[in-house]
Design a protein around this nucleic acid. Structure first.
Length: 483
DNA sequence: TTTTGAGTTGTTCGA
DNA sequence: GTCGAACAACTCAAA
């Protein structure tokens, strides 16, 4: 009788290239049984939101196609991960389980328990790193502490030996032929019951091939002007790789090596600096993982404890207006509508809408984090936590308290032709560049000509920004250490 | 142990 | 229109 298969447990690593667990399975020379287990309850209070589930569905379909082409069939299950793995081992005689690590606090706990449980049953369980350039526990300050400031963190990353070069996808796989029962993808019920995903289908192509294509597009078109264009929301100046990275359809090591290689041959002006600047952003992702690993409580609570005393407001109505893109500030609303429609928002606009929620409306950053969690296709606990705490000023290396974004001047600076605002706020499309970022100041004549009745076609501003700014500064005074 | 220099992304005001 | 300074004080990381 043939020996049992190696179980290859897919999680946030939905790719065949640069996949160390898959590589180890191939090298074991045993037949491979790839499995994905849908177990949302095990993710604590951060079970994947609607947009993430939509993406996951598409990505699993892609993964299952490409596995099948190589000769293996993806088994889908739901239930408790631990029990499913034990069941599969029993059903197939598998004595080995491989997977790639995740770093969310709840998941770390779960995986440790699973590893222990499997080993207690004499099943070999091994995990690998596919998700990060450097393991969070490998990086320490000279004092042996985790980093809390990005620049020295990234310097230390850059001074280390380079991450190993990624391995190509195996040419062929020996799939386990034992006939293992599997659910159908639809049985996981990841897709919405009411189809609201049209905008997402148009904006994205989930899966490993889509990820590679996006990276190629970025290298070809956007790298030299990256430092400039990444700030313009109307431009495809960013990599748009975040959802692919989150689901592991591409890994940071692949990006690192491809970008460096491309930069070495890039004669275009800005090519080098663009590449460096982009890798630095990948570094921020690493930093985010470093932080949730060492300070797991920050997924719910501020890193800087004095912010526990911040006089936040509970304002359900204002929160709703923000969520729906009806604050009366065109750039803020454009961003929130882009998010709702496509499951993604341009990075600069994320900072602007976040600053508005936290500093203009004084609504707790956790509310914003939750909304992003539910609506973003790239919702990632590490990056989401870092981003919101940074904006609120309560995190590591956070924005200084007096840094409050002005949605009007940000609009005029980064969306001067208002292409972005016009795309997402069609009711303002006919307003001139001069007034479109502040329609409440527009002369009656201009509004009329543009067919806008303020308060009817488009809301009057929810708050006065100058006033809101003063209030925020005063609120921040109340938590200052000491005079 | 102490000291030193620095710290993603901004805004406003006054010269 | 442009430019520099103030907006604070603190904490981090390395020397």
């Amino acid at each position: 009788m043939k020996s049992g298969p190696v179980i290859l447990w897919f999680r946030s690593d939905l790719r065949l290239e640069d996949n160390p667990a898959l590589q180890a399975a191939v090298e074991s020379r045993a037949p491979i049984l790839p499995v994905f287990i849908w177990a949302p309850k095990e993710e604590g209070s951060w079970t994947p939101g609607g947009a993430s589930r939509w993406w996951l569905h598409q990505s699993l379909r892609e993964l299952s196609f490409s596995l099948e082409k190589k000769g293996a069939k993806l088994c889908l299950r739901r239930g408790k991960s631990r029990e499913v793995l034990a069941d599969l081992a029993r059903e197939t005689g598998a004595r080995t389980v491989y997977w790639n690590r995740r770093y969310e606090p709840e998941i770390i706990r779960r995986d440790a328990a699973i590893k222990e449980g499997l080993r207690a049953e004499k099943i070999q369980a091994e995990s690998f790193n596919s998700h990060l350039l450097f393991e969070p526990w490998e990086l320490k300050t000279q004092a042996g502490e985790p980093y809390k400031v990005f620049t020295p963190f990234w310097k230390s990353c850059l001074s280390r030996p380079e991450p190993v070069a990624p391995k190509a996808a195996p040419a062929k796989l020996e799939g386990f032929s034992g006939g293992v029962p599997s659910l159908n993808l639809n049985d996981l019920e990841l897709e919405p019951k009411i189809d609201w995903a049209k905008g997402m289908r148009e904006a994205w192509r989930p899966g490993e091939t889509g990820a590679q294509r996006e990276l190629a597009r970025f290298l070809e078109d956007a790298v030299p002007a990256y430092l400039e264009d990444r700030d313009k929301p109307a431009c495809s100046g960013t990599s748009r790789l975040s959802p692919h990275l989150h689901f592991g359809e591409i890994g940071p090591r692949q990006i690192w090596h491809i970008v460096k290689q491309a930069a070495a041959h890039d004669r275009r002006s800005g090519g080098q600096r663009g590449a460096e600047g982009f890798l630095r952003e990948v570094g921020w992702r690493e930093f985010a993982y470093h932080l949730i690993y060492h300070f797991p409580h920050t997924i719910e609570r501020p890193l800087r404890a004095e912010f526990e005393r911040f006089p936040w407001k509970q304002d359900g109505q204002a929160l709703k207006a923000w969520q729906k893109g009806l604050t009366g500030y065109p750039l803020v609303d454009a961003g929130m509508r882009e998010l709702w429609t496509t499951g993604w928002m341009h990075n600069r606009v994320r900072m602007i809408v976040a600053s508005f929620l936290v500093k203009d409306l004084l609504i707790p950053w956790q509310e914003g984090a939750k909304w992003f969690w539910d609506t973003l296709v790239d919702a990632d606990l590490a990056s989401n936590t870092l981003g919101w705490q940074w904006t609120a000023g309560c995190g590591a290396d956070a924005a200084p308290y007096f840094r409050i974004f002005n949605p009007v001047s940000q609009g005029e600076k980064f969306d001067p032709g208002a292409d972005y605002v016009r795309r997402w706020i069609p009711e303002l499309a006919k307003l001139s560049d001069e007034w479109i970022h502040r329609p409440w100041e527009a002369p009656v004549e201009s509004l009329k000509k543009a067919g806008v009745s303020l308060g009817k076609d488009y809301p009057a501003p929810l708050v006065d920004h100058a006033q809101a700014r003063d209030l925020a500064l005063r609120a921040l005074d109340t938590i200052k250490k000491k005079a």
